[in-house]
Amino acid sequence: MSTEAQQYEGPLRPLLIAGHERTLERVNLRPDDQVMAFPYMIVPALAVALGTIAVMTFCSVVANAPLKEIANPDHTPNPSKAPWYFMNLQELLLHMNPSLSGVIIPTNLVPLLLMAIPYIDRKVDNVGHWFMSRKGQEITLFTTIYTVVVGIALALFDSYFTLDPLRDPVPRSGGAFKAVLTYLVKFEGWPDWLTSSPTVGGFPIFIYNDWLTGWVLPFGLVMTAIIALVLIVKFRWKGGIEEVMLALFTGFAVTWLFTTTVGALFRGPSQLLGWPWAHPNGYNPLDDLL
């Protein structure tokens, strides 16, 4: 057996080292030792190609791609859902001003911040180690749980407080903040000028100012959760920029998955929250999924 085959650690290893395990134990492997690209990289790469084709063929034989009735512009399904990978957007739309959640965040903020990550975090000591270190693993796990908990809290907040639960139960951007503000304004003890400000439909007019309830409050709430996360990483784990970036990216990725799941499965007719198996009108979210 060649020394190369001994150093090779890829998926073909069991084949190549059969019978040579003992010899190998004595060889000191260094991760930056090099082997010939053919066959050690090309052959596994071709094996992955065959595997991909096999899995895709299998899926295509067992399950047909969906095809519903012909498009009918006069018949709007309720709910109308985007493709699953955009349901995170659709979910975000319920909670803040649509310019912010539908345009600025997905087409500007997300790509620019993602691209900026390696320019901000320039520490390379831990490259090549999954989750960087022990500390990194703990931070990733913590951030995952933190993000899901905050996400559930925010989603419930927005569906629990609505302006008028009986007449207007449909969640809409900033609605929860409007509702809470309305409640606060009706609360006894506020100065007269606040409670007697001009009203529309019985509600003080400033509550309808979308700048406050669609932009500042929801974005501020999310920013507060993000800043709290950064502070926790800083103080609990004495984290540097590397750890902070790890937490922020994890927060982003988990939010992506979380909002996608909520939007895809937990939103039923009129975008109301519900268990995936118990939506009204027998709506099955899986029908709209793929």
Binding site: Q7, R30, D32, M41
Partner: peptide, 13 residues
């Protein structure tokens, strides 16, 4: 597009 030699570590599945 690939190099002639690659590092062992990058082949780890």
């Amino acid at each position: 597009l690939f190099p002639v030699k690659v590092r062992v570590h990058s082949l780890k599945a």
